[in-house]
Amino acid sequence: MTAATTSAMPADAGVQTVAQAYATADMAAAFLAIDIYARASLEHSLCTVNRYDADAMRVVRLHSSNPQAYPPGGSKDKRGTPWGRHVLLEQRIFVGEGVEAIREFFDDHDAIRDLGLQSVINIPVVYNRECLGTVNFLMTRPKISEADIDSARLAGVLALPAFLALRQAAKK
Rank of each mutant, 00 (worst) to 15 (best):
T2N: 12
T2H: 03
A4I: 15
A4E: 15
T5V: 14
T6E: 15
T6M: 15
S7R: 09
S7T: 11
M9A: 06
M9E: 12
M9S: 05
P10S: 05
D12C: 11
A13H: 01
A13M: 07
G14I: 04
T17R: 15
A21W: 07
Y22P: 06
A23V: 06
A23D: 09
A25E: 15
M27A: 08
M27I: 08
A28K: 14
A29E: 10
A29P: 07
A33L: 08
I36D: 15
A38C: 01
R39Q: 03
R39L: 06
A40F: 09
S41G: 15
L42S: 01
E43R: 13
E43A: 15
H44Y: 09
S45F: 05
L46A: 01
C47H: 11
C47R: 00
C47A: 08
T48A: 12
V49Y: 02
V49P: 01
N50T: 13
R51A: 12
Y52Q: 10
A54Q: 14
M57P: 04
H63S: 06
H63F: 13
H63D: 07
H63C: 02
S64N: 08
S64M: 04
S65Y: 00
N66A: 13
P67F: 03
A69H: 08
A69P: 03
P71N: 04
K76P: 09
K76H: 14
D77G: 05
D77I: 09
T81Q: 07
P82Y: 11
P82Q: 10
G84F: 13
R85E: 12
R85M: 10
R85P: 09
H86W: 13
H86G: 08
V87S: 04
V87K: 05
L89I: 13
Q91S: 08
Q91W: 13
F94P: 02
F94T: 06
F94W: 15
E104N: 11
E104H: 11
F105V: 15
F106P: 09
D108G: 11
A111F: 12
I112W: 07
L115G: 01
G116E: 02
G116H: 00
L117T: 00
I121T: 00
N122Q: 13
P124T: 01
P124M: 03
V125H: 03
V125M: 06
V126G: 05
Y127D: 05
N128C: 11
N128D: 15
N128Q: 13
R129I: 06
E130Y: 11
L132S: 02
G133E: 05
G133T: 00
T134R: 07
V135A: 01
N136C: 05
F137A: 03
F137N: 03
L138N: 10
T140D: 14
R141A: 00
P142N: 01
K143Q: 11
S145A: 02
S145G: 01
E146G: 02
A147H: 09
D148N: 03
I149G: 02
S151W: 11
A152T: 01
A152R: 02
L154W: 04
A155H: 00
G156A: 05
G156S: 05
L158N: 04
A159F: 04
L160K: 07
L160R: 10
A162T: 06
L164H: 08
L164T: 06
A165F: 05
R167T: 09
Q168E: 04
Q168K: 04
A169Q: 12
A169V: 07
K171V: 07
K172E: 03
